[in-house]
Nucleic acid binder design. Structure first.
Lengths: 147, 147
DNA sequence: GATTGTTAGTTACATTAGAGACTAATATCA
DNA sequence: TGATATTAGTCTCTAATGTAACTAACAATC
């Protein structure tokens, strides 16, 4: 059986969700290896840590909204980060359902290290792209992400 | 604690692996819903089916290489697709370790339907982008994917 | 032609993710 | 005040994934 391009001019190698998935997986690999090996973190844990680092103390719920993550995923990441002593949580006085999350000293240290590693890694990913391409790429991705 | 942008000018909302992951998840959602509900397929199953449709009969190993998927994932997808009667497999005479995969009539039918749905969906994703942006986006993603 | 190595594909086990039920705290409003 | 509804976060059960060990077929070398 030969390829069936005659049905439509559709081509898998230009299908956006496919490309995005492959690019996401390929580009995550190296950095993921770093935070896994160095801090035994999962992807969601690093995202949660990073949100606290970059946007300041907040509740699990706020992280869900900002990061676009399901609350069970965030809940589990918080437990793991707390066990690693990277964050602590405090019930908020005026509404004891909310827990304010904040970084510990070692959480801040890890955040700094990971931020720097991420910045270097990001630069290496786009090293072959022109500045214009980089701008277009990031802005298209932001639109697609709904950020 | 306030944001700590002074440490570096790194910003999560421009970090490529993060953007790629969010864009990939967001853009997969709608199409995924279609093939899940209509054909009870998982993502890997649709990818395997589509590789056979677009590139012709091949072995599981070839699909692994072309699609960048692990052999266990492909193996499980093949079992599932076979149970749904979308593909069949035949041991190759000259080397009975290889199994040549091919589409059944209903596999072809599903492929056509999914291809058309994918094409429409892809068009809707990039509807807000200029033709130039679309070209840059896809070519950057292909490079990042190693395609 | 027995041993050793390699390759295609599967299986088994452990890890991670997802969906929905659940608990505790607060809010609403009759 | 008491009944009902919401909300933040956790727990439980199941589905999906990743890793590594495994089987079967073939290849190569002594």
């Amino acid at each position: 059986m030969k390829p069936h391009l005659e049905t439509t001019d559709f081509d898998l190698s230009t299908f956006l969700p496919y490309l995005l998935n492959r690019a996401a997986e390929a580009s995550s690999l190296e950095f993921q290896q770093y935070y896994r090996e160095t801090y035994s973190m999962l992807r969601t844990e690093w995202r949660v840590l990073f949100h606290l680092w970059q946007y300041g103390n907040m509740t699990a719920k706020e992280i869900c909204v900002r990061a676009g993550l399901h609350k069970t995923k965030v809940s589990r990441a918080i437990v793991a980060l707390e066990q690693k002593r990277f964050i602590k949580r405090d019930k908020m006085a005026h509404d004891r359902r909310n827990e304010l999350l904040s970084l510990t000293a070692s959480g801040r240290k890890a955040s700094i290290d990971l931020t720097q590693a991420a910045a270097r890694f990001d630069a290496s990913l786009v090293a072959d792209f022109t500045p214009e391409e980089q701008v277009v790429l990031r802005s298209c991705l932001q639109k697609l992400s709904g950020i």
